[in-house]
Design a protein around this nucleic acid. Structure first.
Ligand SMILES: [Zn+2]
Ligand SMILES: [Zn+2]
Ligand SMILES: [Zn+2]
Ligand SMILES: [Zn+2]
Lengths: 142, 142
DNA sequence: CCTTGTAACGAGAATCGTTCTCAATAGTAG
DNA sequence: CTACTATTGAGAACGATTCTCGTTACAAGG
């Protein structure tokens, strides 16, 4: 027996501070928009950083499970990630550039819960996302 | 020149009444739940009907573009289809059996439009879906 | 009915995002 | 510094969806 003698340090997956994880965390904290794993991978590559695609996928998933990222699925089926604030909110996403604004909608929450009950459903969750063209992209497309 | 002499009968894609399309339309009109192309394919196969997978995908897509079907993406990324009523509505979907109830939420529509404007977004659309366990599935899982 | 032009089919190959495998690498506690 | 093992990454494997292209079969004319 060599490592871990007593029940103190919580060893196990997800706790090592690696170069790859630092890179991803940094890039995410700098992002305004929702981005895909592929985009993250390409961007890191472009800036000369060496990271494996599988690692990007794994890390993004792990962070999501840990509640550090919000997920969204684009129309063409790609999974997009974003580092958001901690409170419950919804997203107003630009269809063109991905820029995202966090918005809240207390009315929606209530409506959702009520609608669920009314039909005998339990454990009701809701998916509420808004898509549009941000001010900048609206202007650009005129 | 043989077919189409004058500018009357709108020839072109999407208008032939084939056995496969009838089968799909029939099965969809009998479905309470959102279903995937694969499921449709399997079900048709199971009931002895001969249909190609590509045809199922193509037809479902065409019907969707024609506004005859509503689309939804499952958590694991599959596209699900359902024949719904013509008016704008949202869905309360059972996570377990897929059974769906159409619900409306005037409050949500307003909130969405307003939130969009407030941040300078244009052409705002919304995705609002509710997921839960239907009464039957809630009972079964106790 | 029979003929035609072509929309629609379908089997299988090709895409594409994502996940898995497994040998090599590198945090970390001691 | 060493040992233990979490993590990585190249490439194979997957699964849903799309594409290809030779064959089939609607449906308008004749
Ligand atoms: Zn968010
Ligand atoms: Zn934009
Ligand atoms: Zn619907
Ligand atoms: Zn159910």
């Amino acid at each position: 027996m060599t490592a871990r003698t007593s029940g103190s340090a919580p060893a196990g997956p997800g706790r090592r501070d690696t170069r790859q994880r630092r890179l991803l965390r940094d890039q995410l904290s700098r992002q305004e928009a929702f981005v895909s794993a592929q985009q993250m991978y390409d961007d890191l590559r472009a800036s000369g950083d060496r990271v494996g695609l599988a690692t990007v996928y794994r890390t993004l998933q792990a962070m999501t499970e840990a509640g550090e990222l919000d997920v969204l699925r684009s129309d063409d089926g790609e999974v997009l990630y974003r580092q958001c604030g901690p409170q419950h909110h919804h997203h107003l996403v630009c269809r063109s550039c991905g820029v995202t604004v966090e918005v809240d909608g207390p009315a929606v929450e209530k409506w959702a819960a009520k609608a669920g009950e009314a039909h005998g459903f339990t454990e009701v969750t809701h998916v509420v996302e808004l898509f549009g063209l941000c001010a900048a992209c609206s202007r650009a497309s005129r």
